[in-house]
Structures are given as C-alpha cells and as structure tokens.
C-alpha cells in the first residue's frame, strides 16, 4: 500500500511537469526577472548593464509621462468599469425577459466580444475621423460644430472609453445572464404574490443574489482595464501628447520603441504590483463578505 502511495506521488508530479515547466519559464521566472532587472541599468554596446539600486524607480517618480499614464489608466478604469457593468446587467435583464426577437438582440450585444479589438478599432476609426467620419457627419447634419475627436487631448480618452464599454459590456452580460437563469422561478412568483413591484423585486431580491457575479465581473473588468491596449495601436498611438496612453502601452513603447529594457521592467513592476493588489483585495475583502458556494 505504501509503495502505491509513493508511486501515486511520483505520477502526480510527472503529470504536472510539462505544464509546470512552461508556467515556470513564462510566468514565474519573468515575474522575478522583471523585478531583478528593475534594479539594473539598461546595457548598451559600450556600457554593460550594472546594478543601480533604486535609480530606475527614482527616475520613474520624476517621469511626467509615467504619472500622466497612471492618471489616464485610472480614469480609463473609472470610466469603463461602472458603465460596462451597469449596461451588462441591463442587457442581461432584457435578454432574459420576454423580449420579442431576443435571440437576435442577444447576438447583437455579444458580437463585439468575439471580434478582434484590432478589427473593431479599424472600424471605429472611421466614426472618429474628423470631417468625413460618421460622428462629424451626424453633428454637421444638425448644424453643430464638428471636432477632431482623436486629436483633442480633452476628449481622446473618452473616445477610447466608449469603445471599451462597447467591446466589454456584452461579454459581462453573459455572466449575469447565466446567474439570472440560475435563479429559481418561484422567487419572482412569490414576490408577485406579495405584491412587490418589479423594481422592488429587482433591488431587494435579484440584485443581492447577483452579488457573486458582480464581484466576478468586477475583478475581470479591473484586470481588463490594465490589459486593453490594442485599440491604441490603431486609433491614437497613445497621442496626442500621451493623452490616451495607458500603462501597458507605455511599457510597450519604452521597451520596443525606446529600447530601455530596465525602465520598462520598472514600469512592469508597477503593473504587477497593481495586479497583486487587486487579487489581495479580492481575497481579503470581497470573498469574505459575499457568500459564494
């Protein structure tokens, strides 16, 4: 019996090994290496990389673009997360109800999810193009002043936010829809018998029961707000004057346009810290307060 237990242990590790090697090489090792690299200078042909302590971090704190990008990212998160979650819930309630042609409506809501961001950015570029773009054409037909949507630092980030909401809401809807379908139908009947209005039933019964889903969607939405940068490559390249640059995009620029690996690593550490903070917050606060199986 003991021999078979030992054998089982060996088998367990053997089965795990292929996946473990890849995970260690492309998730754990680079995470640690990024932290390590952030304490070194970027090596050049003449000057090899050397230990510089916290110099990269000091440089980062004085880097105006860094603060700009962090501010942009926070605004981007604050703009996309609540709106896309609220819309997702609304969509789910509609699609779950007795709406005529609801299969078609559900498909319409969900379609942006399966389209590549690059492709939809190509299409949205036309909406935002000055003068001949769709938005300006609509404005002009009402005799309103047109604008340079993506060229104006005050509105460019909002254009990106609208696109992100459009792209994400349908994806989040799916999870609400699943949760709504899992609610026992007796609940609604009981509420109706008690004479509760639809709004009351939703606010006091459905919404609290959807809390685990909201948490799940929220965590996903927060992570996405650090990850969704593809559209910038097509629409703005982070411009004008970094008004629409997000953290991950800035990391890409520093690493692959300015070839400053160490500074890119330092910025990545900030991004990793943000992600770690999110998971810590999820673990400490939300999981405890919301009953979840």
């Amino acid at each position: 019996m003991r021999a078979s237990r030992r054998l089982n242990q060996v088998y367990g590790w053997l089965l795990l090994t292929p996946a473990a090697i890849l995970l260690l090489s492309f998730t754990h090792y680079p995470t640690v290496a990024t932290l390590w690299q952030s304490f070194f200078s970027t090596g050049t042909a003449l000057r090899p990389s050397r230990f510089v302590g916290l110099d990269n971090y000091r440089f980062m704190l004085e880097d105006e673009i860094f603060w700009k990008v962090v501010g942009n990212n926070l605004l981007f998160a604050a703009g996309t997360i609540p709106v896309s979650i609220a819309l997702a819930l609304l969509m789910a309630v509609w699609v779950n109800g007795r709406l005529p042609g609801r299969a078609l409506v559900r498909m319409a809501y969900f379609t942006p999810t399966i389209l590549p961001m690059i492709a939809v950015a190509n299409i949205w570029l036309f909406f935002y193009t000055p003068e001949i773009g769709l938005l300006d054409q609509i404005l002009r037909s009402f005799d309103l002043p047109t604008r340079n949507w993506l060229g104006d630092p005050d509105i460019v980030l909002w254009c990106i936010i609208v696109l992100a909401v459009w792209k994400e809401a349908g994806f989040f809807m799916i999870f609400y829809l699943a949760a709504l379908q899992a609610l026992p139908p007796e609940l609604e009947e009981a509420a109706r018998l008690e004479g509760a209005s639809r709004a009351y039933y939703f606010r006091r019964v459905v919404f609290p029961l959807l809390m685990p889903t909201t948490l799940f969607v929220l965590v996903n939405a927060v992570i996405n707000s650090f990850k969704l940068v593809d559209q910038l490559f097509i629409l703005t390249k982070g411009g004008p004057d970094n008004a629409s640059a997000l953290l991950l995009y800035y990391i890409y620029e520093v690493a692959f346009s300015f070839f400053d690996d160490s500074y890119a690593a330092t910025l990545t550490v900030v991004l990793l810290a943000a992600l770690a903070l999110i998971s810590l917050g999820q673990f400490l606060f939300l999981d405890r307060r919301i009953h979840y199986r």
Partner: peptide, 26 residues
C-alpha cells in the same frame, strides 16, 4: 495526492492574474 500539491496549484493560479501580456519585456 502528492507533496506540495496545494502550493503548486496556488502557483498555477498566479497566471490568472499575471497573464503573458503583462510580461512582454522579459
């Protein structure tokens, strides 16, 4: 059941948070 299973599983789940996109430089 093998020693270190729970730790290994926790280490696997790290990738849910730190996706390869974040680690492009390294």
């Amino acid at each position: 059941a093998f020693p270190g299973r729970d730790l290994a599983f926790a280490l696997v789940l790290v990738q849910l948070m730190i996706m390869p996109e974040v680690l492009i430089v390294e």
